[in-house]
Design a protein around this nucleic acid. Structure first.
Length: 584
DNA sequence: GCCGTTTTCGGCCCGACTGTTTTCAGTCG
């Protein structure tokens, strides 16, 4: 699959909370942390700022509302000084401490810090000694061999810096979850295919946690001959560049693909390593703190009390030994899962096998490739009890949207098909367009006759928040609309959300008993994990739809389930788990 | 800068790899 180019401004933090403002405030704290790091200030202070940034990004409430209510300090990691800074930013658009820190630091330093192999110490050295104030200046200095003369630097460091610049420019960007999964599977399959090489091998990291976009791919393996595994990995058919290769770990860049890190561990330590390399970093840091309280130590080799191994072979053993329930990788983001695990109140997450049907499927009647009958066969093969055919409505001309007449014709075809089909039921639906003037594209009388109505915005993305929300209100309040599809309209790495107030939409959905969709298409994954959790907290049901335009598209359900799991959703929160779904 | 079964000061996660060093600092995850 082709690598996506990321055009929107917010690609670095795809897990945005309800409003842009949270993310915006978070970014200020990231900047502050970068600057203080560059200046060599107290590392713990820097970590504290980064923690604040992450907490703000993960927030399911509006930071401005918390500030107004005076409850900022209830947030973990936010103390008096930070609360003051947040208030200052909300009121004035500036943070005095940040402005001070910026003084005398050229803005290009932020980019220099993002080059692989250049950290705060080297960035400061380069700036002070030879005036490197940006990536271009750094490249020139390295090419002119001015870098190797600096203390602690040499020929190799210079080469590595140039390679770091190349890698960053070539696209050290994040990739879609689906792309990373494919790359990881290719590497894993190649290593597995070599007889007797690996006894266990599995992706770890953010891929295993199923984040919606992935930076590097992490893979964990064990086998009799670690050196041979590293050798096979670095000489794999997909490798274009070897970054590091040691006894137990190696990093490569895959041709037209991501950086892949492999770690080789002892079989008896596989569980500890899997836990460690699955992360997230924040989750692990909290876990380490808990181990420390219990006078234990945790690292990638195991959980230790003094020299004694308390747990190491399986992940579950480590969590249990720390006094908590083991938890699925999708929850490990330090968003309250550790506290829940200690108190024994982790949700039992929805699983792929619970899914009985797909709510969002297109056919050749509009812009799908396959007939209704072919889609039904594919759904039956997937083990489903139902699918909902939801072709586009007429105003979406580019997608050959259905007129009222054609909808009626489709209803007849589906009725006839259902008389023949065994073991699967085709429900008659529509993806009705919420037009830019705030009306629905088909009359209520017709919508009332359909089994399932999903409504979606496909036009006028640039409208004001008021207009977008007015359109959403029309859809949610319509008694025939069952689901609002891809509610924010974002395309990961390509297009930002339209100006939808998601917390307000969720309140609307709750009040009108309208479900919200997780669109499982890899570029959408919309709602995202944070919004899903917010929906659940408000009692709003979620419907997963693959938006399949061909039979193979039904396979994307796994990505939708992953988002649901990341959003803490249980079986009862997801409408697809009911073989005969009921609506308004 | 935050935080408290170590409570208002003194901690704050931990190890691998690299390149430059004569024993370790810097970077990364």
């Amino acid at each position: 699959m082709r690598r996506k180019r990321w055009r929107c401004a917010t690609w670095r933090k795809e897990n945005r909370g309800p409003t842009v403002d949270n993310h915006e405030v978070a970014q200020r704290f990231e900047e502050l942390a970068d600057l203080l790091e560059f200046k060599g200030e107290n590392a713990f202070k820097i970590r504290a700022y980064r923690r604040v940034a992450r907490v703000l990004d993960d927030l399911t409430e509006d930071v401005a509302e918390l500030a107004a209510a005076g409850t900022l300090r209830n947030l973990p990691g936010v103390g008096e000084a930070t609360a003051k800074k947040i208030n200052e930013y909300l009121e004035t658009g500036k943070i005095t401490r940040l402005e001070q820190a910026k003084k005398g630091v050229p803005p290009g330093i932020f980019d220099v810090l993002r080059i692989q192999g250049v950290g705060p110490k080297r960035a400061a050295l380069l700036y002070k000694e030879i005036g490197v104030d940006g990536v271009d200046a750094l490249e020139k200095a390295a090419q002119a061999h001015h870098v190797r003369d600096l203390p602690g630097m040499g020929e190799k460091s210079e080469e590595n810096i140039l390679r770091g610049i190349r890698l960053t420019r070539a696209g050290a960007e994040r990739m879609l979850l689906s792309v990373a999964l494919a790359a990881a599977n290719a590497v894993v399959d190649e290593l597995k295919s070599q007889r007797g090489l690996v006894s266990r091998i599995t992706p770890a990291g953010s891929l295993r946690r199923r984040r919606e976009s992935i930076g590097d791919v992490d893979i964990l393996a064990c086998g009799r001959d670690p050196a041979k595994i590293i050798q096979a990995f670095t000489h794999g058919s997909h490798v274009s560049d070897v970054l590091v290769a040691g006894d137990t770990k190696a990093s490569v860049v895959v041709t037209r693909g991501p950086q892949v890190d492999l770690r080789v561990v002892e079989p008896k330590q596989f569980g500890a390593a899997l836990q460690y390399f699955t992360g997230s970093k924040a989750h692990n840091i909290k876990l380490r703190g808990i181990a420390k309280q219990k006078k234990m130590k945790i690292n990638e080799y195991g959980l230790f009390k003094g020299r004694k191994v308390v747990a190491s072979a399986e992940e579950e053993d480590i969590y249990r030994a720390l006094g908590m329930e083991p938890m699925p990788p999708e929850l490990r983001e330090d968003r309250g899962e550790i506290e829940a695990a200690i108190e024994g109140r982790l949700p039992k997450l929805v699983e792929h096998k619970d899914i009985k049907g797909d709510f969002h499927v297109h056919s050749s009647h509009s812009d799908g490739k396959h007939s209704i009958s072919e889609m039904a066969d594919a759904a039956k093969d997937a083990g489903y009890k139902f699918i909902v055919i939801t072709d586009h409505s007429k105003s979406l001309r580019i997608a050959n949207g259905l007129t009222e007449q054609r909808v009626r014709k489709q209803m007849k075809e589906i009725a006839a098909l259902n008389r023949k089909l065994r073991g699967i039921r085709v429900l008659c639906g529509i993806e009705v367009d919420i037009k830019s003037d705030g009306t629905l594209d088909l009359p209520d009388g017709l919508l009332a006759e359909l089994d399932v109505v999903i409504a979606a915005i496909h036009s006028a993305f640039k409208q004001s928040r008021e207009k977008i929300m007015a359109r959403m209100a029309v859809a949610a309040k319509n008694p025939h609309v069952d689901i609002i599809a891809h509610p924010t309209g974002r395309l990961i790495g390509q297009r930002d959300e339209y100006d939808v107030d998601v917390p307000e939409l969720i309140r609307m959905a709750a009040a009108t008993k309208t479900a919200l969709e997780i669109n499982a298409h890899p570029e959408r994954l919309d709602l995202n994990d944070i919004y899903c959790r917010m929906a659940k907290e408000h009692g709003v049901k979620v419907a997963i739809g693959t938006d399949a335009h061909r039979a193979a598209g039904l396979d994307l359900m796994g990505l939708g389930v992953a988002v649901a799991r990341r959003g803490w959703l249980a079986k009862r929160d997801v409408l697809n788990t009911n073989a005969t779904p009921r609506f308004k």
